[in-house]
């Protein structure tokens, strides 16, 4: 750890967290790519994952998740940005790099290694303990609580590794993750001025709806929002076992906020929407918005104990509205080069 601060000047980022669990949970929700863009700002870390330029997932590690958070951003006068996740356009200068997401997730799970050893020892002395599912962490294990030690995150300067140091029960694990030059992909454009509909509902409902549609292994998911019944309808098509649809017809009970300008119907690839399932699982509320171009934005509110809510942002590009299927395929093909970037 001494080596980290040895360079000229303080490191760009130094943050210490006492629990890795929320950090892990938030990142897990955007685990659909290999490399993610990390952006360090005054208010926290922003992780952006991109899938073939048709899906984007953004997770934030809010400053509040850390017990200490200090940045030393290179730009001379970083303006005071507000914490609201909605306006990403108005961000202060920041440091960006890419890092391997599976590696970060793996690292954050290292917590509890000592715990596993302790459990093993306990199993050895107690022969009557069931060895059934012994590999699973129980509810009170340190791995589940993620709070036995400290997790220090640092990034010295450009080109240096992203370093995660875990200290647990006298065992220190240092993980230096290689950083990559950012590819600076633009965010999927979402026009906040031209929102066609906005629905806030329980994330659980959305997950249930997708679970309901998934068994027919559909290819496409159509989301329709309308002023009259059914207010919100998700329907699947293209599956070999038939088609399904889910209606949120009793709008008053189900939809917390509901404002629809006109009928909005867009079709998405089912699998990319399904990638957001992990987010639906951990989130309490979801805000669905669609803009005039058909881009769908899903914002998930995740309640994290001890700090305020964290947000996960997803954006999806719909299939081009054409009569022929070829055009839709074309869109997929265009997206292919983007996949290579990952």
């Amino acid at each position: 750890m001494e080596g980290l601060g040895a360079g000229p000047g303080p490191p760009i980022l130094r943050a210490v967290a006492s629990s890795t669990r929320p950090l892990y949970q938030l990142l897990k929700a955007i685990h659909f790519t290999n490399k993610i863009h990390v952006e360090i700002t005054e208010n926290g870390l922003r992780f952006a994952a991109d899938h073939a330029r048709v899906m984007q997932g953004v997770a934030h590690w809010n400053k509040g998740l850390f017990t200490s958070y200090t940045t030393n951003l290179p730009s001379p006068a970083p303006r005071e940005g507000d914490e609201d996740d909605d306006d990403e356009e108005d961000e202060p200068p920041s440091v960006t790099f890419q890092v391997s997401l599976p590696a970060v997730l793996e690292t954050l799970q290292i917590f509890g290694a000592a715990d596993a050893a302790a459990r093993q020892a306990r199993a050895d002395v107690d022969p009557y303990r069931s060895n059934l599912r012994n590999y699973r962490a129980d509810a009170f294990s340190n791995q589940t609580l993620g709070m036995s030690g400290t997790c220090a995150i640092s990034y010295a300067r450009e080109g240096e590794p992203f370093s995660i140091v875990l200290d647990e029960a006298g065992v220190t694990t240092t993980c230096n993750l290689t950083t990559y030059i950012p590819e600076a992909p633009d965010d999927i454009p979402f026009d906040i001025q031209d929102i066609s509909f906005k629905i806030i509902t329980s994330a659980r409902w959305l997950l249930d709806a997708l679970t309901e549609l998934a068994p027919t292994s559909p290819e496409k998911l159509t989301i329709a929002a309308s002023k009259r019944e059914p207010f919100l309808r998700l329907s699947s098509s293209g599956g070999p076992l038939g088609s399904s649809s889910v209606d949120f017809a009793k709008g008053r009970d189900l939809l917390e906020t509901f404002s629809v300008g006109g009928r909005w119907v867009q079709t998405f690839k089912f699998d990319i929407i399904k990638s957001a399932c992990e987010a639906m699982r951990i989130a309490s509320k979801v805000s669905l918005r669609g803009d005039g171009q058909g881009v769908l934005s899903m914002q998930f509110m995740v309640e994290v104990e001890g700090s305020g809510p964290s947000f996960l942002d997803f954006r999806f590009v719909p299939y081009a509205v054409c009569d022929d299927d070829e055009d839709e395929d074309e869109e997929d093909e265009e997206a292919e080069p983007g996949r290579l970037e990952m």
């Binding site: 249930d208 709806a209 309901e212 076992l241 038939g242 088609s243 399904s244 889910v246 209606d247 009793k250």
Partner: peptide, 13 residues
């Protein structure tokens, strides 16, 4: 299928 929470799912096979 009508659920108690008001969501309805219809499947056509």
């Amino acid at each position: 299928v009508s659920f108690r929470n008001g969501i309805t799912a219809s499947h056509s096979l």
